[in-house]
Design a protein around this nucleic acid. Structure first.
Lengths: 232, 232
DNA sequence: CGGTCGCTGTCAACGCGATGAGTCCCGCGG
DNA sequence: CCGCGGGACTCATCGCGTTGACAGCGACCG
C-alpha cells in the first residue's frame, strides 16, 4: 500500500485529504507542523509527501530542506500564495510540484498519481519467487541458486524463451489451477488448444531445471485431467 | 548539455522559450505540431519535453501517449485550459506537470528544473562499472584500461555515439534482461522495433572493444530469442 | 481379478529461426 | 578529396522449438 504523509495545520483540510486518500486506497499519515512532519517522515518513511507551506512553526522551504537532507521522497507543496517567486523558491528547495489553494481535489489526486508513477518506475521491484533451491526473478529473467542450497547445484540456471513464458503464467497464478488450454493460449497463441504434449515437454524441462527431484515435483504440480498448478 | 524539446504552434511562444532556455544553457529543439513532436523526440532524444496541448494536428493526450509508448522522458504540459478535468486527463495520460497559460516564465523554469533534477537522480546512480579489463565511466564517457590488465591492451578505448547509447541502456539495467525491442526504441527511437541486425552489429562491436574474448562474452550476454543482458 | 484405455513423463531427431560475423554503400565532416 | 561512422545486406553456424514415438501408471470396465 502506498503511504502518503499529509502535512497541514488546518484540521478541515487534513480531514478532507484523509477521506479522499483513504477512499483511493492510500495509507495516510498526518502531521500538523514542520517538526511533526520531519518526525513522521523519519518514522513512517512515506512514499510521497503533501506539504502545506503555511505551517505555524517552521518556514516551508526549511521543511523541504529537512526532508531533502536524507530522502528523495516526492514532495507536493500546497500553498495559499500564488506568487511565482514562492513557487520558484519551493521548487528549487527540492519540491516536485506546487499547487495553490484553493485547488481541485481531482487535480491534486492526479498530480499525486503522476509523482507516484514516476517514483515507482525507479524502484520497479518485481516480486521474486522461490522454487526448489532457486530464486526466480521474473523482471530480470534470472534464476539464481539460493544461499544454503547444495553445492553441486548450478549457481545460475538458464531458461529459454518458451520456458519463461510457461513459468510466468504459472507463477502469476500462485496456488491456482491453470488449465492446459489456458496455458497453451497464453504461451503459444489462441490457435493452440490441444497440443498438450508441448506442456508436458516444457513442464518436464522446468522441473528438471528447478525442482530438486524432477520426478517428484513439489511446486510445479500436475492435476491429472485438469491442468497444472504452481504451489508457492 | 540538457536537451529540451519545446512543442508549440505559436511562433512567439517558441521564440520566447528558445531565448529563455538558451540563456540558461539548455539545448533547444522545437516542433510545431504533434507529428513533428514525435519525430523530433525520436530523432533528438530530449531530456525533457515541454508540450502545448493545443496543437493543430493531434489531440494532446495522443501526443503524450505516443511518447509514453517508448520513453519515460519527463513531460511538462502547457495549456490554455484551466479546467481540472483537462489537467487530470493529461496527467493520467503520462504527463509529469501541467501549467496553464498565461504563466510566469520563472515558474516554468523552476518546474523544468524540478523535473530534470528528479530524472537525473534516477539515472545517475552508478557512474563507473567494469567490463573485461576496462573501467567504463558513463558520466565522463570514457573507457580506461584497469590497473593489472595485460600490457598489450590499449590504454584507452574509443566508443562511438551509438555504441555509448547501446552500452548505456544495458549498464543502467545491471543484471536485468533488456529486450531487443526496448534497446532499439531507446537507442534509435520508436520506429525501430525489428531491426535486430543493428543490435547484433553493435553488440559485436562492443564485445570486440571491451570483452577479453569477444567470441565468448562474459558480461555482455545474449539471451537467445529474448534480448541482451549486462552482467556486472 | 485381469485387460484395456487414457493420460502423463521421457527421449531422440529434424527443421527453422535467431545470432554472429563479414562486406558494401552512403552521408557527413574534416 | 579522403576517412569515419552508421545503415543495409548476406551467409554459415548454433541452439531452440517442434514433432513424433514409446513406456509407465492409474482408472475404469468387463
Amino acid at each position: 500500500m502506498i503511504r502518503v504523509l499529509v502535512v497541514d495545520d488546518e484540521p478541515q483540510l487534513l480531514r478532507a485529504m484523509r477521506i479522499n486518500l483513504t477512499a483511493r486506497r492510500y495509507e495516510v499519515v498526518v502531521a500538523a507542523d514542520g517538526a511533526g512532519a520531519l518526525d513522521a517522515a523519519a518514522k513512517h518513511l512515506p512514499d510521497v509527501v503533501v506539504l502545506d507551506l503555511g505551517l505555524p512553526d517552521m518556514d516551508g522551504t526549511d521543511v523541504i530542506a529537512g526532508l531533502r537532507g536524507w530522502t528523495k521522497v516526492p514532495i507536493l507543496v500546497l500553498s495559499g500564495r500564488a506568487d511565482s517567486a514562492d513557487k520558484v523558491d519551493a521548487l528549487d528547495a527540492g519540491a516536485d510540484d506546487y499547487v495553490t489553494k484553493p485547488f481541485s481535489m481531482d487535480e491534486l489526486m492526479a498530480r499525486l498519481r503522476a509523482l507516484i508513477r514516476r517514483s515507482e518506475t525507479e524502484t520497479a521491484a518485481e516480486p521474486a519467487v522461490t522454487i526448489g533451491h532457486y530464486t526466480v526473478d521474473l523482471a530480470a529473467k534470472t534464476v539464481q541458486r539460493r544461499s544454503g542450497a547444495p553445492e553441486q547445484t548450478p549457481e545460475q540456471v538458464h531458461l529459454t524463451k518458451t520456458e519463461w513464458a510457461v513459468l510466468e503464467v504459472l507463477v502469476r497464478n500462485p496456488g491456482r489451477l491453470v488449465s492446459g488450454k489456458q496455458l497453451l493460449q497464453q504461451v503459444w497463441g489462441p490457435a493452440y488448444q490441444s497440443e498438450t504434449n508441448y506442456l508436458r515437454f516444457y513442464l518436464a524441462k522446468l522441473r528438471q531445471k528447478l525442482e530438486p527431484e524432477p520426478s517428484h515435483p513439489r511446486q510445479l504440480l500436475t492435476e491429472p485431467g485438469m491442468g497444472y498448478r504452481f504451489e508457492p
